[in-house]
Simulated assay, not measured.
Amino acid sequence: MSGKPVSLKVLAAHLGLTVGTVSRALNGYKDINRDTRDRVQRAADELGYRPNQNARRLSIGVPETICYLMPRYSSSLAQPFVAQLLQGLGEALSKRNWDLLVSHAESSKDELAQIDRLVRSGRVGGLVISRPLKNDPRIRLIQDLKCPFVVHGRTGSCDDYAWYDVDGDAAFVEAVNHLVSLGHSDVAFVGAPLQHQFAQDRLNGYQRAVVDNGLSVNPEYVQITDFSDEGGEIATNMLLDLPSPPTAIVCVSDMVALGAMAAIRGRGLVPGRDISVIGYDGLKFGTHSNPPLSTMAQPQAHAGRRLGDMLLSIIDGDDPKKHQELQRAHLLRRQSDGPMQPASAENTVSEREELQ
């Protein structure tokens, strides 16, 4: 049916039912029998009825809007990481006809004020935050405000709130073990600022794997940089300037790994042939890098869907502590990792491709 949307009152008159009965049928109330609910839904579909969400929200006292707090990084707005996460989060919320609000603040102080204002205004029914600090003041504030929330990641202590995370420690153990199996003994790490728990976890995994493989942790091979491709490029240039540069590099993210490969190419070297590079995230743009980026992959859209489902369950009354989920990343080999080559070896790009 086209034209002006049909109101609830018109739909009820068409069916010969009261407005209250039709409303309860559309919202799945069990005191309305199944046949009536099905008949009402069929008529609503045929007539093109669409509920007035604002009126519904006012009547039940729930805003039905979730706010995602954008990570505070200068390049975050351009990161596919965020876009894929939001895609999954939006899919989860749309199943319940909830809306998604995205908020971004320039500083920690601004972000805390923003959270306080959003919750006290009654505009949001829950919050999702990403990339928490080891000791994150946002979590304490949201708990004090008694607003439902879920965290993408974990803090140093994470027993009393809901979170979804991927095991960064285990991922970097796997990445280093893989490179050692290819013959690399000089493996470097390019990481992010360590006030973030995810950055610490990934460094811990790298260091543990180096030791477990009977190698020494070389402090010069650990570079902490800005969480960006530019940071990765700067850090990798520092590694390449060492008297004994590494033959392989594991990077805290795919964005950082892109910068690492740019630095390697800038020296006339070929990533994956002369120096192996492994990123972390598994973002789609890695298939188009030069060469395609090997990475520890985590599905961001899936993470967004899980975060949305978990938060809606908490809003419905679940104990947040029941919603704590740790997933594993998996090695996705493309062309930026390969066997250790003797210093004198001269391999062509075509020879590198034959190794894949």
Score class of each variant (00 low, 15 high):
residue 4 K to L: 08
residue 7 S to P: 01
residue 10 V to C: 00
residue 13 A to N: 10
residue 17 L to N: 06
residue 17 L to Q: 10
residue 17 L to I: 09
residue 18 T to C: 09
residue 26 L to N: 01
residue 34 R to F: 14
residue 37 R to G: 07
residue 37 R to L: 00
residue 40 V to F: 01
residue 44 A to H: 03
residue 48 G to Y: 05
residue 53 Q to H: 07
residue 57 R to L: 01
residue 70 M to K: 10
residue 78 A to W: 07
residue 80 P to M: 12
residue 82 V to F: 12
residue 83 A to Y: 13
residue 84 Q to T: 08
residue 87 Q to T: 10
residue 90 G to D: 04
residue 93 L to G: 13
residue 103 S to F: 07
residue 114 Q to P: 00
residue 118 L to T: 11
residue 119 V to S: 07
residue 122 G to V: 04
residue 125 G to T: 03
residue 126 G to L: 02
residue 126 G to T: 04
residue 130 S to M: 09
residue 138 R to H: 05
residue 144 D to G: 07
residue 144 D to R: 14
residue 148 P to C: 06
residue 149 F to C: 05
residue 152 H to Q: 09
residue 156 G to W: 09
residue 157 S to Q: 14
residue 162 A to I: 05
residue 162 A to T: 07
residue 166 V to C: 09
residue 180 V to W: 03
residue 189 F to G: 00
residue 189 F to V: 00
residue 193 P to G: 08
residue 206 Y to T: 03
residue 208 R to Q: 11
residue 210 V to C: 06
residue 213 N to F: 10
residue 216 S to H: 06
residue 216 S to W: 00
residue 217 V to M: 09
residue 218 N to M: 02
residue 218 N to S: 09
residue 230 E to V: 14
residue 236 T to R: 02
residue 239 L to Y: 09
residue 240 L to E: 07
residue 242 L to P: 05
residue 243 P to V: 05
residue 243 P to S: 11
residue 248 A to H: 06
residue 250 V to C: 12
residue 251 C to P: 10
residue 253 S to N: 11
residue 256 V to I: 15
residue 265 R to Q: 12
residue 266 G to T: 13
residue 273 R to S: 11
residue 285 F to K: 00
residue 285 F to Y: 13
residue 290 N to L: 02
residue 293 L to E: 05
residue 295 T to F: 05
residue 296 M to D: 10
residue 296 M to E: 12
residue 298 Q to R: 13
residue 300 Q to Y: 14
residue 303 A to C: 11
residue 306 R to K: 13
residue 319 D to T: 05
residue 322 K to L: 13
residue 323 H to K: 12
residue 326 L to F: 03
residue 331 L to W: 08
residue 332 L to M: 14
residue 334 R to Q: 12
residue 352 R to S: 12
